[in-house]
Write a protein that binds this DNA or RNA. Structure first.
Length: 274
DNA sequence: GCCCAGGGATGCG
DNA sequence: CGCATCCATGGG
């Protein structure tokens, strides 16, 4: 994909492998807001404004190299889509979600975000996450940074309830006392299976949340998060042989192997939007 | 008022 | 183990 980096922006000359709406609304990310002709995007303490142009996008930001990595710009999605289109079942989903990219999000932020996502609706917990920024994060120029673990350690369980976390407040309170940002970074060296077990041992993290952190944070591509939409997709396209989520997950990882994560995103987006 | 949300923890057999 | 039940709460 063609793009150019400047000191205050990235220019993307492409709409085929980069579609801001698809990237942001395919369920991997929640810290964005719709603005005229684009989106405000927040990650950690960084900010970018993504604007659609005639031939592509402008990513306007003080941290162009951060967002080059964040949007996974060095990765060749044409190649990935080309390989995956060998699967008959993926042909329409890939065409439909051609501009999806899997973000490389901050580990701590993605962990907290997906703990809140469990049995919750996106609109509600996105609001909780923004309120968490306002209450505990550093005030930046016109927005708030995502709070650090140290900042969140000052929160009581009741504070999280007041932000709208519901019964997940306890999970947040606990998980903050189980890991820090440094430990999450160190876990990058672990193989996927070991790492997955480490994540599942954390409070509020089960198989699905662990797979989301693996895919959207650690960028592990050999995982296939199974949620309600993927469950529907499985029954629609593959029948009713397996009933429990763990079995469905094993089947789908077996089916898509090292490209599971990408396949999952195309299928998820296709199911949810149709 | 009712049902649902990108599930996880807990307890029970 | 595998399965059932409970869980807070805003949005639709």
């Amino acid at each position: 994909m063609k793009y150019q980096i400047f000191k205050d922006k990235i220019i993307v000359f492409d709409k085929e492998d980069f579609d801001a709406l698809q990237i942001l609304e395919c369920g991997q990310f929640f810290a964005y807001q719709k603005i005229e002709k684009g989106f405000d995007v927040f990650s950690e303490d960084k900010y970018a404004k993504v604007i659609e142009t005639d031939k592509g996008y402008e990513i306007i930001t003080d941290s162009p190299h951060y967002f080059e990595d964040f949007f996974d710009l060095k990765n060749d999605y044409s190649k990935i889509k080309n390989k995956l289109s060998g699967y008959e079942i993926l042909k329409k989903p890939i065409e439909f979600g051609h501009g999806i990219r899997i973000l490389k999000q901050d580990l701590f932020e993605v962990l907290i975000s997906f703990i809140l996502s469990a049995n919750n609706n996106i609109k509600r917990f996105s609001k909780t996450l923004f309120k968490m920024r306002e209450k505990f994060g550093k005030r930046m120029d016109g927005y708030f940074a995502f709070p650090t673990r140290k900042q969140l350690l000052r929160a009581t369980e009741k504070d999280f309830v007041e932000l709208g976390a519901g019964y997940r407040a306890k999970y947040l309170y606990n998980v903050l006392r189980q890991v820090d940002e440094k430990t999450l970074e160190e876990w990058r060296s672990l193989e996927t299976k070991t790492l997955r077990n480490k994540l599942i041992s954390l409070s509020g993290v089960g198989p699905k949340v662990a797979d989301c952190v693996l895919l959207f944070g650690y960028h592990r591509q050999d995982v296939f998060p199974v949620d309600t939409w993927i469950e529907q997709m499985y029954h629609k396209f593959y029948g009713d042989k397996e009933q429990n989520r763990e079995k469905i997950r094993e089947f789908l990882v077996g089916e898509f192997g090292e490209f599971s994560g990408y396949a999952q995103q195309y299928l998820f987006f296709f199911m949810r939007e149709n």
